[in-house]
Design a protein around this nucleic acid. Structure first.
Lengths: 337, 337
DNA sequence: TGCTATTTTGGAACCGGTTCCAATACTGAA
DNA sequence: TTCAGTATTGGAACCGGTTCCAAAATAGCA
C-alpha cells in the first residue's frame, strides 16, 4: 500500500498539517522542517492521493471534452490542441466521444456537473438554447470550440471570412460562374452552421464583385465524398455549368474531383475546385483549400476555460480565429478567360 | 450546492447507511423504505458525488490510455475502440497523448499508479523490460494494444500473418522479385517491431515459395511518405529492380506510388504495390493493402483490462487479431509474366 | 404470549487529503 | 529578565461517500 500523509508526518516527526504545507509549498514552514519532511517524503516514495485531494478541495481537477472526435480528422486535430494545452497543467482530460445523437444527449445531460468536471470543452456542437441554459446552470464553465452560442464563450474560425477568401480567389482568377457545394445547413448534430457561414462569405464575395448568386449553383446533401460526387455531377451537367466549385469541405471537394473526372473535365483547366479544411489528403492531391487553425482552436478553448475557472466567471464571448487560403493546383483561370 | 447523501437521509427520515444501500441497490432494504428514499432522491435531484465515492471505495473508477493518438490515423481508430467500449461502463477514460519521447517517459512514470487509474491501456508502444517491470509493480493491470511484451497481457494483430498475406498475394500473381520497404525496426518510440514481424511474414512467404530473399530488396528509413519515396526510388533504379514492393504502411506505399510515377513506371502494369493499414486514402487511391481490426483491438484491450481488474490478476497473455488482405487496383501480374 | 431467528436499520469509523484556529516557539525591544 | 509580537506548528473538523457492527424491529414458532 502506498504511503499516506500520516505516514510521512509520523516518520518526519511533525503534524500532518505541516506535511500538507510542504507538499503545497506554503511559505509557513521553516526551512529545517521542510527539509526533514522532504526527506521523509523521498524515503517513503510518497505522493499525495489525487482522489483525496479532489474531495478535500472540492474540485475535480479534471476537464471534460465532448467531441465527435473520430468522425472527421479536423476534430481530432482540435482535440489535440485541447490535450496538448492541458498536459502542462494539473488537470486531467476526460474524453467523451460522440458518434450518435443519443450519446451526445446523454453526455450533455450527465457530464456538466460540478462534481464530475471543473470545466467542459464542447467541440463542434452548436447547442440549442435549452442546452446552453443547462450548461450555464451547471455551475461550471463551458467553452465551445468550433461552434458559437450567444450565451457561452466560443472560439471559432472565421468561416465567413474563409468563404470569402475562397470565393475571392476564384473571382480574382476571372471566374464568374462559381458553384457552392456543402452539407445541409441543419443536420441532427448541429454541426454545420459552419457551412452556412461559409456560404454567407461566398455570397458576400460574389455580391461585392457584382457577380450573380444563382440558386441552381447551390447544392447540398449529406456529408461525404460520394454524396458530393453526385451533387457535383448535377452541377457539372447544368446547361450553363459553373467554371469553379467551392466545396465546404475537402472531403466534398474530393467528390467534386471525381465527378469532374467522370464528366471528362480537366482540373484546373476546365474546372477550378476549392476545398475547405486542408486535410492531409489535400496536400497530396494539390487541392486548393482553406486552412483553419485547428490545433490553436482547441488550445484557445482551454485557455479561455482555465481562465474562467480561475476567475469563476464564464462570460459569453466570441473569438474568431483567422483562416488562410492555401493555393495549390486545382485552381486556374476559367477556360474562356 | 448539490444535495449530499445526508440531505437525502434527513429528508427521507432514515440513516445515511440506508440511503447508501438504496443507491447501490443492496437487497438489504425493505421495499417501503426504498421508495421513501427514492422519492427524497428525486425531490432533491440528488446524485452521488463521484469523488467521494472513489475515495471511499479506494478505486479511481478511471482507466488511463497512453496513446500516440494523433500521429497516425490508425491509433485514433484503436483509441476509438477503447473509448467506445468504456462508454458503457462506470469508468471514465483519461487520455494521455504522446508525441515526444519525453512525454512518453513522463506518462510511463506518472500514470501507472493505484491512486491515479484502476487500469491502463498502452497503445502502440512496446515497453522495455524495465518499463514492463514498472508496470507490473504498479499494482494495476496494464494491457498492451498493438504491441507485445512477454510480461504483460497484449492484444496485437497478427503482423506476421499480415506480411505473409501480402507477400503471398504477390507471389500468387507471379512475382518473384519483391521488395520490402519499412521504417527502421527500432525507433525511439519502439513503435515498429510491427514492421519487423511483417518482414518476418514476408520472408516466411518467400521462403515457402522458394523465392529469393535479397538483402538489396530491403529498404528502411524514417516513417513518412517522403522518406519512403526516396527509398523506393533506390529500389526502382536497381539494375534488377523488383517487380513488386510491399510497404509496411499505406503512408509509405504512397511514397512508393510517387516514386513509380517519377521513374516512369505504371502501376500495376510495371510495378505492383501493396500497403498496410487500409487508411482512408487507400480506398480513394485503390491501393491494395492489409487491413487490421483496429477498433476491435482497442475493444479487446479494454475487455481484457476490465477482466483483470475484476479478477485482480493481470496474467501475461497474447492475443492475435486476424488481418485481411484488401485487393484493389495496385497489384497485377509482373510485366514479364 | 414469550422467546429466538431473521430482517432492517443507523451510528460511527474510515478513505486521505486541506485548512481553520488555537497553542507553542521564537524574536527583539524594554 | 519580561513581555508583546511574529513565526511555526499540530489538533481536529471537514469533504461525501461506504461499510462494519451492534441495535432495533419484525417474523416465526412453540
Amino acid at each position: 500500500m502506498p504511503a499516506t500523509i500520516r505516514d510521512v508526518a509520523h516518520k518526519a516527526g511533525v503534524g500532518l498539517a505541516t506535511v500538507s504545507r510542504v507538499i503545497n509549498n506554503s511559505p509557513l514552514v521553516s526551512e529545517t522542517t521542510r527539509q526533514r519532511v522532504q526527506a521523509a517524503i523521498a524515503e517513503l516514495h510518497y505522493s499525495p492521493n489525487p482522489t483525496a485531494r479532489r474531495l478535500s478541495l472540492g474540485k475535480t481537477l479534471t476537464i471534460g471534452a465532448i467531441v465527435p472526435f473520430f468522425t472527421r480528422p479536423s476534430f481530432v486535430e482540435r482535440l489535440r490542441g485541447v490535450e496538448g494545452t492541458l498536459a502542462d497543467t494539473a488537470y486531467d482530460l476526460i474524453v467523451f466521444n460522440v458518434e450518435t445523437v443519443e450519446r451526445r444527449d446523454r453526455y450533455f445531460a450527465e457530464v456538466p456537473r460540478r462534481d464530475r468536471v471543473d470545466g467542459l470543452i464542447v467541440v463542434s456542437f452548436t447547442p440549442t438554447d435549452e442546452q446552453a441554459a443547462v450548461f450555464r446552470q451547471s455551475g461550471i464553465p463551458v467553452v465551445l470550440v468550433d461552434a458559437r452560442h450567444p450565451a457561452l464563450p466560443s472560439v471559432m474560425e472565421d468561416c465567413l471570412h474563409g468563404g470569402q477568401l475562397a470565393t475571392q480567389h476564384l473571382l480574382n482568377l476571372g471566374h464568374r460562374r462559381i458553384g457552392y457545394l456543402s452539407d445541409v445547413f441543419d443536420d441532427p448534430f448541429n454541426f454545420t452552421s459552419r457551412s452556412r457561414f461559409r456560404y454567407e462569405g461566398y455570397v458576400a464575395a460574389l455580391e461585392a464583385a457584382g457577380a450573380p448568386v444563382r440558386a441552381d449553383y447551390l447544392k447540398q446533401g449529406a456529408h461525404g465524398r460520394e454524396p458530393a460526387r453526385a451533387l457535383a455531377t448535377e452541377l457539372l451537367t447544368l446547361p450553363e455549368r459553373p467554371t469553379a466549385i467551392f466545396a465546404a469541405s475537402d472531403t466534398q471537394a474530393l467528390g467534386v474531383l471525381e465527378a469532374a473526372r467522370e464528366v471528362g473535365l480537366r482540373v484546373p483547366e476546365d474546372l477550378s475546385v476549392v476545398g475547405y479544411d486542408d486535410i492531409e489528403l489535400a496536400e497530396y492531391l494539390g487541392l486548393t483549400t482553406v486552412r483553419q487553425l485547428l490545433y490553436e482552436s482547441g488550445q484557445r478553448g482551454v485557455e479561455i476555460l482555465l481562465e474562467a475557472i480561475a476567475l469563476d466567471v464564464a462570460a459569453p464571448s466570441y473569438e474568431a480565429l483567422p483562416t488562410e487560403l492555401i493555393v495549390r493546383r486545382t485552381t486556374a483561370p476559367p477556360p474562356t478567360a
